[in-house]
Simulated assay, not measured.
Amino acid sequence: MSAPPALAVENVTHAFGKVTALDQVSLDVPRGSFTALLGVNGAGKTTLFSLITRLYDNVTGSIRVAGHDVRRAPGPALARIGVVFQSRALDPGLTLRQNMAYHAALHGIGRAEARERGDALLARVGLIERADTPVAALSGGQVRRVEVARALLHGPQLLLLDEPTVGLDVAARRDVVRLVRALVAEDGVAVLWATHLFDEIEATDRLVVLHLGKVLARGTAAEFSGGAALADAFVAMTGTAPEAAA
């Protein structure tokens, strides 16, 4: 029997009052894969992430992480997820090591093991030499790399990243994308990467197009674009003006 996917979302609907944010959304993220969740602001990407991570309660459909239902077995499900939210989550007054240690404690990781894991991950993201530097002294791109390292501390199978490159310059964006893709290729981490930026998606990536709360397409980016530019295919399907989707 094959192992369940890292993430399986089936027929999930969510509303805020009379406004439907997600409408019968289904998607999956295979283990060890990079899946891009493409949609403009307001598509429902952050709402979906909030349901997966139990910030909101899903009352319709099902969400499973490595086979564990997030509603019925939240402990095992959430233990397998690492998250980088769009908003910054590190304490700017603490050093990189202190931030890592604090997060490790939340996962019940002992101090010695936390130091070992934290330093290894800071080295992995190229920031071990800044381990005793306050987060406030880092650039935006460096902060994002530390957030990725922190999200990996407890050894998750699934990494969720919600618009992780927003506000970064071109070089910093490239560094974050390369880092996350290396985690997929070298460590077998499954990634769900939410974005509205077409140049962050490669032709062979698994792609889910989310628009106005509905999944409009699933498959590879190449299959979706059909030989056209990804942006052109997206605009043709959604009717969204390029400047709003770029």
Rank of each mutant, 00 (worst) to 15 (best):
A73D: 14
I128Y: 10
R54Y: 08
I81L: 02
G226V: 11
F198E: 00
H154L: 10
P30D: 07
L22K: 03
A43Q: 12
V59S: 10
R97C: 14
V235K: 02
G93E: 15
R130Y: 11
P242Q: 13
G219S: 08
A105R: 15
A233T: 10
A3D: 12
Q98F: 05
G213Q: 00
D187A: 04
R111W: 13
N11V: 03
G61R: 07
T238W: 10
T195P: 01
A21H: 13
E116L: 14
T204R: 15
T46P: 05
P134I: 14
E202T: 12
P30K: 04
D23S: 15
A228G: 08
P134T: 14
D23N: 15
R173Q: 15
V215I: 14
R80I: 00
P156T: 01
E186G: 11
V70N: 01
T204D: 15
F198K: 01
A229C: 06
V84A: 13
A245K: 06
V189G: 03
V191F: 09
E200V: 05
L183E: 05
L121V: 08
L160H: 06
Q142T: 04
A245Q: 08
A15P: 09
A172E: 09
V215Q: 07
G39Q: 11
R150C: 05
R124Y: 05
L106K: 05
P156R: 07
A73H: 14
H196T: 00
M1H: 05
T46G: 08
K45V: 03
A241V: 12
G44Y: 01
D69L: 12
A233F: 01
T60Q: 10
